[in-house]
Design a protein around this nucleic acid. Structure first.
Lengths: 244, 244
DNA sequence: TCAAAAGTGTTAGCGATACACCCATGT
DNA sequence: ACATGGGTGTATCGCTAACACTTTTGA
């Protein structure tokens, strides 16, 4: 940050950037026990026809976060979601357009990662050939460096889940202990913890309030409905929690 | 990312950016038991005369990381360091220059955080009125949103220290167990763990190799010199380690 | 009445905490 | 010989992992 605004540099050696925002939007298919990611098919060059993460270029007067929310809003309608910035990718030549135009404009990608509830997330286009949930285990080759971004987001998701209560931002108001367990085990894999122990830990933390209500889902004993107790959680914030 | 390279948008609604890189460079003063951060005094507007994080605008042909390393190289000479990207700040109006010029150029800041050894880091300018280590506990009001960036970096440093071996990237080849302990306790604060327990955990991990050599520092029993065993650590990578 | 889903209890063992204590060296 | 810094040992407690068990419902 060398030049001043009163003495602008006319022919500068500074790079000019367009800034892209790419979202890694995760969702959990509790039925099939799969983690999903939202992909869109590119309608423009470069990488026309390839699957990619939903993204956009930042517009005038728009903050990075604004852009991230706009991408979401253009693709799905959701009530609850968790969104956070992931990483900024700025390697030279990560976007083929950098070499094709002579102005030397660079393309930066600020990635965000989001977690939404599948049951709540309604896709705006129902044409699954252009916008669709893909199982994370089976994503195809993506445009740009998006496979790398996805991998990075997947890593972050697993970490976040272990030591912060993002699950509750995505669960409905009231939920059963099994609902949380399902969420955790489909994201973290089958071998993360015994249901009984998971349950005990969670309850011992005292961040769940029993609503008293019960819900019956098919056969079997009805499950208690709990609510996330934000007040009880507040003092635990920033503390080394482990939700494993 | 809508327009194609074959059909360029002439009058676009996309924002144009200059991208800044700001470094949060930490170091540990083991003598005084203080965590330090490198600050520089601004020589230009805006915020002329204010202390700020060392930063620069990204040049043509330069990657984000290149820029981060350049900032470092312009200020200090070091052999070992740890560097990683922190966060990207892109709020509207975070840089006063955005409103002062009519071209609507935006200023983004990609921040990096670095950890270097104080004994090894030689400042290139010895004029402490322009470049100096400041105790983190007593940083003044900084230019831009740099206090926020610093806070974010401090948080990240503490987290990283607990579950990844960044300390060893900053310690000399051989070191005593007390050296590590000093490093940890000045960064994490006095109340993080008993020396005896810290020591036991560290040795049990099996990632330290005893060189057999000893070193005497003043009075007292000589300390064993250890070396970080990267081979022994390799399989533990990505595993849930805790260095507390 | 039996299977399915929810919820409870029990035990062994590891690991953290908080100390007390022993060892080797300089002055 | 004693202060100083380095290093070892141990008892307590809590938490985790693994698994057996009980309860409540629908069919």
């Amino acid at each position: 940050m060398a030049q001043t605004s009163t003495n602008p540099v006319i022919k500068s050696n500074l790079a000019d950037f367009k800034v892209g925002v790419d979202n890694v939007i995760f969702s959990v298919d509790t039925q099939a026990n799969r983690l999903l990611v939202l992909l869109v098919k590119r309608k423009d060059n470069p990488f026309l026809g390839s699957w990619s993460l939903p993204g956009t270029l930042v517009r005038i007067g728009e903050s990075l976060e604004d852009a991230a929310y706009r991408i979401l809003a253009e693709r799905i309608r959701v009530n609850n979601l968790y969104l956070e910035q992931l990483y900024t990718f700025g390697t030279l030549g990560r976007d083929p357009r950098e070499s094709h135009n002579s102005f030397g404009v660079r393309y930066l990608s600020v990635s965000y990662f989001a977690l939404v509830r599948l049951e709540e997330a309604e896709l705006i286009t129902h044409d699954i050939s252009t916008t669709a949930w893909h199982p994370v285990k089976k994503v195809p080759q993506l445009a740009f460096d998006h496979n790398q971004i996805l991998e990075y987001g997947y890593q972050r998701l697993r970490n976040k889940l272990e030591y912060s209560p993002i699950a509750f931002e995505v669960l409905p108001e009231v939920f059963t202990l099994n609902d949380i367990y399902q969420l955790y085990s489909t994201i973290l894999g089958e071998n993360f913890a015994d249901y009984s122990n998971f349950r005990a830990r969670l309850l011992k933390m005292g961040i769940l309030a029993d609503t008293g209500a019960k819900v019956s889902r098919g056969a079997g004993r009805p499950a208690s409905l709990y609510r996330f107790d934000a007040e009880a959680f507040a003092p635990l914030k920033d503390k080394p929690l482990v939700f494993i």
